[in-house]
Design a protein around this nucleic acid. Structure first.
Lengths: 131, 131
DNA sequence: CCGCATCCGGGATGATACTG
DNA sequence: CAGTATCATCCCGGATGCGG
């Protein structure tokens, strides 16, 4: 798993890198783990959005968290931020090619999660009643 | 994206659920976002492991975090935990079918991350020097 | 060998208020 | 409209030590 490869030594490197490091995984997982990232990417995958639009689409997000989320996505190159110097200013967010590629992966996760949800919940209940 | 579906209202529900909820996403992302989950699953995808084996495979993990990580994976049904009542006891961890399915998704993430890593780092540097 | 208990710091998140 | 600033809170994760 984790892509085909040959292990000359017979030792399997689970992450697939000789350095036995975490590859660039943290780089990606750090974003993925944050509360609003996936929902924000999902929202933007439907098309460019302005700040308030985005906020309305993300039920319960605060302005602070929205700003932080899009900033970090911008920093990692998932999202582009375009400012129109009108008055009042208009800021539009849009997925970059990398963002769209990321969205495709995230989409699989979403679909998988939707299918597994009831079973995971059942597992938790079973585990909790055992303990 | 996020699987094909029709939107009767013309309104796109980014997460794909009428409830405009986060689907079962949090359920999955809560695990995925945790620091050792993916590496642990990767390790176990190479085969069953005993506690210490697992720890040796996960460079830098503390016992506390290892225990927490496998417990939560067990609770959600990704991992099965088998105790041999020997002396001293022997505990073996192994991926369940759900765990293997999850590992396949995580594997895509790992591969994607490995490819994108240098570009993401470059994006960060560019962003940081702009600000 | 396997795992739990306790203490602790830092980052993630949230509530609220304010600004060009 | 599109953010900052500030304060409070929570919990992950690390360090350490004990127990079966």
């Amino acid at each position: 798993m984790f892509a085909d490869r040959e292990i000359a030594t017979g030792e399997l490197e689970p992450c697939g890198l000789p350095e036995h490091e975490d590859c660039g995984l943290r780089l990606v997982l750090d974003r993925l783990g944050e509360r609003w990232t996936v929902m924000t990417v999902a929202e933007l995958s439907a098309g460019p959005r302005r700040y308030r639009e985005l906020q309305r689409g993300l039920d319960g997000i605060t302005q602070r968290m929205l700003t932080l989320t899009v900033r970090r996505l911008e920093r990692d190159g998932y999202v582009s931020r375009v400012v129109e110097p009108t008055n009042p200013p208009s800021v539009t967010y849009e997925l970059t090619p990398r963002g769209k590629s990321f969205a495709a992966i995230a989409g699989r996760l979403v679909d998988w999660a939707r299918v597994e949800k009831p079973f995971i919940e059942a597992s938790r209940r079973a585990f909790d009643s055992r303990n």
